[in-house]
């Protein structure tokens, strides 16, 4: 591929996509809670930026609304809520020991390669920009899942959950210029409610197991012995 031949805005889109992927990797390996939330906020900022760029390039004016919505919700409101919760639960300085960060990052890289492989059939009729960005969006979804699998702290899991949503939104923006407005508003509403409910759950979990380590939620078994 020849990046230099692309227009400036396309190059900007690809560069921001790379940065979004980078923030996903930060979330994977960042053991401290506060920088983890900041990484998530940066991902939201980049997502809003890329949405505005795509809106500029494609002339799809409704994407500006999505960009504003993303900026407000994913870059400010939800990170702020998470941060406030972390402070109220007094875990903002906590460090979650990761067993094997390097192996985790290697698995993450493997997932990125896998995403490029998966996206081949989707992007066959598309341009170079879309080919890269769709693969990156799939990678962000998979990395978000990896965060949820690998991390035990409830806040880290929520950050993973929300970054899965970021990946899905990213996929919609780059492959189809976003979803119809009514759907996008509905999804934004769901995400907001989910964020509030997660906050409620942090307190319930702590009241029940005296910790936010969800790996200790292990009373229910598939088969009772």
């Amino acid at each position: 591929m020849d990046l230099a031949k692309l227009s400036l805005s396309d190059q900007a889109v690809i560069a921001s996509a790379a940065l979004i992927l980078f923030t996903s990797f930060i979330m994977l390996a960042q053991a401290r809670i506060r920088p983890l939330i900041y990484a998530f906020a940066w991902q939201g900022v980049l997502l809003a930026l890329i949405t505005a760029l795509v809106a500029l390039v494609s002339g799809q004016s409704h994407l500006y609304i999505s960009a504003a919505l993303t900026l407000g919700l994913k870059a400010f409101l939800i990170p702020w809520m998470l941060h406030r919760l972390a402070v109220r639960l007094n875990v903002q300085h906590e460090v979650e020991p990761l067993a094997n960060p390097s192996i985790l990052l290697l698995i993450g890289s493997a997932l990125v390669i896998f995403s490029y492989y998966v996206s081949v059939p989707i992007v066959q009729f598309s341009t170079l920009v879309i080919r890269n960005t769709v693969a990156v969006s799939v990678a962000v979804v998979l990395l978000g899942m990896l965060v949820m699998v690998a991390r035990d702290k409830a806040i880290a899991q929520v950050v993973g959950f929300m970054s899965i949503e970021n990946g899905l939104f990213f996929a919609a923006v780059v492959s189809t210029y976003g979803m119809p407005m009514v759907v996008e508003l509905g999804i934004a509403f769901d995400v907001l409610v989910a964020a509030v409910l997660f906050g409620v759950f942090f307190f319930q979990i702590r009241a029940s197991i005296d910790s936010l380590d969800v790996s200790r939620l292990n009373r229910l078994r598939e088969i009772d012995e």
Partner: peptide, 29 residues
Amino acid sequence: RTPESVEAAWKYFVLCGVGIAQALFGTVL
């Protein structure tokens, strides 16, 4: 608010949330 019910609710929330995220991706496709 029993430990079991909080655990069940958390599992429900997270597993269904991640599961249904796949459906959103399918919808985008």
